[in-house]
Design a protein around this nucleic acid. Sequence first.
RNA 1: GGCCCGGUCGUCUAGUGGUUAGGACGCAUGGUUUUCAUCCAUGUAACCGGAGUUCGAUUCUCCGUCGGGCUACCA
Length: 507
Amino acid sequence: MSEVRVRFAPSPTGPLHIGGVRTALYNYLFAKNKGGKIILRIEDTDQSRFIEGAEQYIIKSLKWCGIEFDESIVDGGNYGPYKQSERKELYLPYAEQLVKDDFAYYAFDTTEELLAMRERMKAAGVPSPQYNSVTRTTMQNSLALSEDEVQMRMDAGETYVIRIKMPRNEEIKLNDIIRGWVVVNTNNMDDKVIFKSDGLPTYHLANVVDDYMMKISHVIRGEEWLPSAPLHVLLYRYLGWEDSMPKFAHLPLILKPDGNGKLSKRDGDKLGFPVFPTQWVNPETKEISSGYKESGYNVEAFINMLSFLGWNPGTTQEIFSMQGLIDAFSLERVGRAGAKFDFDKTRWFNQQYLRSKSKEKLAQELQIILKENGVEAEDNFVETVCDQLKERATFVKDMWEEGKYYFSAPTNYDEKTIRKKWKEDTPKYVSELKAKLADLSDFSSENIEIEFKKYLEENELGMGILLPAFRVCLTGLGMGPSLFDIASLLGKEETIKRMETALEKIN
RNA sequence: GGCCCGGUCGUCUAGUGGUUAGGACGCAUGGUUUUCAUCCAUGUAACCGGAGUUCGAUUCUCCGUCGGGCUACCA
């Protein structure tokens, strides 16, 4: 069997959204699973839709995702260039060959003429007019015009496009890896432009020529390409490359959570969650769209979540590393139906990864957030904080937001807890407890707990009476991790100080 | 409208010509916990509809319906 070579071929018309990332991911997983290669090819044949920075965004965001290419504009390779605008001159000869072989033709029609034709057809009762075997006879093209006329127009410098000459009533079949046999009759296909008047090919031709030249073995792309796949099959056939035509796999689309339509890059943050892997700043409007990276998602959780949107291993295992995904992946286990994006599940994946991380690793990440907030803390201290907080966090930033009291004394005290737990006698108990704690030489969590319970016993008090009050003194909150652990970590001096401050402030 | 592709709990999905239709997220309840979270246990809830094939269809076929995609000198 020949080498597996797949490509991810985005067009630099903006940032890549998670659907595109998933397509790249599946290509990557498939290639690596088969010991093959993955190529990144930039499809920039539409110069009018070029967006500044999009290409760099695509490269950088995929890098963040851990999707590494074997060949690309940055990694090089033996089948370059890997950007279509740099391959420009390659395509015309193939288009002209098709004309010569009577599989394509020149067309001179202006936009206005095309529009007029559509209007005319609509008026005549054709609901969706096409440039096809019946209408082309009435248009300005090398099939309807005389040879002399065509030559004259070309000599005069008139611009033209090259259209494929769609045959009549032929069944085009293709065996999609995910969908099985797909059959389309050419009567339902139109004479697509394969080469534009601006000297560049359209997607259809460029894609076929490049895939052939780059020896692509499998085309794995979104389902939105399925309708034009028969056209691509025809192009391979007409170009004489049918024997080396890649296998096709059309992926189900990622749908919006409400089920109305496929996820689109225009959705930005409108749906209540990021649609981009990393943050994107619109170069024109400066509008910022959030990314998973900046929102605090672990990259492995993000990839793990994406991989499960349309694929599953057939077992109950849900947590996979990238290598695990590579080992388990197969196109046969990719589903056929579109998947609605599930934001809750995404958060759950992140939580799973957060938990599995060591306190050292988490502390490193938390330190970054602490520094951003002007907090200086010892690594050891932060590690213990992470240990105490990780079970109740979904994101690293949660540990900062919910654990500020580890780094500075509370400035206000939770009203509800005060109302319910701060009784008349409480100040007396707190100050007595404070005195007891002040005498402790071993300020370990266990020791504090013993001392605390001893005090409760002596005064015939229940945990529920004094502990919430104690907690609110130290943290200002009514909930949180083990208070004895917190007190121990804060240390005796700080604990006593906070109790004193609280006694002064509460009432 | 035309063409193409789909349809199992609310969501992601497993699965089979005969199953108590399984798991995960979410949600709910109980237990644990000083509290919240965690954790544990339990529960909740699905084969789009109609024909046909068959002893038997969620599974196979057809029709309908619903959903999605495409329908540009965009990818």
